[in-house]
Design a protein around this nucleic acid. Structure first.
Lengths: 156, 156
DNA sequence: GCATTATGCGTGTATATACACGATGTGTGT
DNA sequence: ACACACATCGTGTATATACACGCATAATGC
């Protein structure tokens, strides 16, 4: 089950990191694309989840923290923590506990403005991605990732 | 470019999060699979990157921090930080600066033992993943992710 | 009415990730 | 020898992510 580990390797001429681990490939790709989007959308403080939160809230209106976390396939407590800097920056408002101890999260005017500023950069990042992978393969990848995301349907 | 946001939504009966953002899908899937692998491999403290580091070091021998980060498609400073808990737990040893200020990272005996303990759990997690997505689609996904990871080839 | 269950949240703790900036060591050209 | 480029690393700061645990409120059963 091996054959080439014995005598030497030295040539650091691009190791394609042939890891057999599916998680490794997922996380590595997520890191790479996070850097790519971050480089394009670097005007604001944060990038990845904050954009999605603003985007979702701008369309859905007020949501509870749990519902927001569920829509993003994220642990509830992670979402809670992610909302803190956004709240500090005035992008969202987290109401006091309302019915059933639920705290409604909603986008502020500043949040809408920030989202409007981010949109062109986001489109640029999206374009770069599609140029890199191709339209058909991008669609294929997304459909696979949607199925992958349901592997954790039990939790959350 | 919209049609269904006006009057109400209420039914929280599983929103498939039809985000148009490629990064969103990548990160969401990575989160879900991270949780899945983490649930299976929860015996040790950390999961995702530590396993990969141990796996790579066990096959490649000693590597510099920069080389290790490059093989994992990760920022060098992130790798530095990730190595700290592993070093504290005795899984790896980070030698003092050698030639050209490079610090050699190598796996310890305890690290090899931890890796050996992790392997069966990792195989279990891999099996669950392949069962969920299917063998053909798993291979297809991985090949796509390998191409995606090169979007950031300039940096690192 | 009261115990039980279900739902929604926060905190403590730990790891993961990256950028900006600076420090140090190594070689190379003149 | 010296200046300058280059490679390697660490730190400060900020965000992202999850699990274990506990608390409070709402709904339900008797």
């Amino acid at each position: 089950m091996n054959a080439e580990q014995s005598h030497m390797q030295q040539n650091t001429e691009y190791t394609p990191a042939d890891s057999p681990c599916n998680l490794f490939h997922l996380r590595r790709a997520a890191r790479a694309v996070s850097r790519q989007y971050g480089a394009v959308m670097k005007s604001t403080d944060a990038q990845a989840p904050q954009f999605s939160v603003l985007f979702i809230l701008s369309r859905a209106g007020a949501l509870s923290i749990t519902e927001l976390a569920s829509r993003m396939g994220m642990d509830r407590t992670s979402m809670s923590r992610n909302l803190l800097p956004m709240q500090a920056h005035g992008l969202i408002s987290v109401g006091a506990e309302g019915a059933a101890r639920a705290r409604d999260v909603s986008i502020t005017e500043a949040g809408r403005a920030a989202l409007a500023d981010l949109m062109p950069m986001w489109r640029q990042a999206q374009s770069e991605f599609v140029e890199h992978l191709g339209e058909a393969d991008t669609a294929l990848l997304i459909s696979l990732l949607e199925r992958v995301a349901t592997i954790d349907a039990r939790r959350q």
